[in-house]
């Protein structure tokens, strides 16, 4: 689910843009490690593959069809960092060229799909993809990646104050579940077909060290728990959360540093607002840039 511009409250999109900057910087560094820019064509072409794959329909039954989302497939085939970068590139092209997802909401969409979705899609494969449980692990990878992305997007919308009657919300959740299961099935079917053409094409993850395994397992359980909690308590839970976290407070926090300047433009409300808005924007941009530079500098 690509969130368009205009759907998220300003504190939500701004926070996620700021959060996405270092996360993208990190996965970019990870994807480059040991390869410099030699894998750029691979990630680009595989991104184009995911785009093109969405034109191939999979029958679901009762006359409807679905298509691949691709995060988990890329994560299994290329590794999580490279898959994350490819997904980021897909989201950027979708936002710019296809008006699919917003530009200010790009940070949110990247966090949902390229970071959380890819991570959730890699985890089961990483943990159990090497052994007896390979097929269920791949299925779980596809399912989890779509489910986590969709729930994160829904949570952001609800926190931003988009309202849904509980019937609609229930329907939405059911829809998410169906598309998640479908993604699991497609991911598994494609990987099995691939291995029939070229055995050993999708590698088997080496068994990780026990500590890393346990930590990763814990993260998986936590993610699942958050998902379940969210599904069971929404919408009341989310709205309560929004009230508790205080959207109004967050907004106040966001604009407070600029409040002092308002005196200088007393009486002219619109100018004050315009300048506060632009300054806030410059601030976000500066923070993103600074975080990006800082993470890059540390890597050298």
């Amino acid at each position: 689910m690509h969130i368009p511009d205009g759907f998220l409250a300003t504190p939500v999109w701004a926070t996620l843009d700021v959060a996405a900057a270092p996360a993208v910087g990190y996965i970019v560094r990870r994807a480059q490690r040991g390869f410099d820019e030699a894998r750029v064509p691979l990630l680009g072409v595989m991104g184009a593959f995911v785009f093109a794959a969405q034109t191939i329909n999979f029958p679901v039954g009762i006359g409807t069809s679905g298509h691949l989302v691709g995060g988990a497939l890329l994560a299994c085939a290329l590794g999580p960092a490279a898959a994350g970068v490819a997904m980021c590139a897909i989201l950027a092209i979708q936002a710019l060229v296809f008006q699919d997802g917003g530009v200010l909401a790009l940070g949110a969409n990247i966090v949902n799909m390229a970071i959380l979705g890819v991570f959730a899609g890699y985890l089961p494969f990483h943990l159990w993809g090497g052994g007896r449980w390979r097929r269920p692990a791949i299925f779980a990878a596809g399912t989890l990646s779509v489910l986590v992305s969709a729930l994160a997007a829904l949570a952001e919308l609800l926190i931003s104050g988009v309202k849904m009657p509980s019937a609609v919300l229930g329907m939405t959740l059911a829809l998410f579940l169906v598309s998640a299961v479908l993604e699991g099935a497609i991911t598994l079917a494609v990987i099995e077909a691939l291995e029939a053409i070229q055995p050993g094409f999708i590698g088997k993850p080496a068994a990780g060290r026990p500590l890393a395994r346990r930590a990763a397992g814990l993260a998986a359980v936590l993610l699942a728990a958050i998902g379940v909690w969210f599904a069971s308590t929404a919408p009341d839970g989310v709205q309560k959360l929004a009230q508790k976290a205080g959207i109004s407070q967050a907004a106040a926090f966001f604009w407070t540093p600029l409040a002092g300047y308002q005196a200088a433009f007393a009486g002219s409300l619109w100018l004050r607002k315009a300048i506060a808005g632009l300054a806030g924007l410059a601030l976000i941009y500066g923070v993103c840039l600074w975080i990006g530079r800082a993470t890059r500098a540390r890597s050298v």
Binding site: G25, L43, G47, V97
Partner: peptide
Amino acid sequence: GAPRYLLMVAQFLYRYLFVIS
């Protein structure tokens, strides 16, 4: 200020979008 690596990937993606589609 956007990461150059990511933008190069996006550039290849767009270039081969036509071909792979």
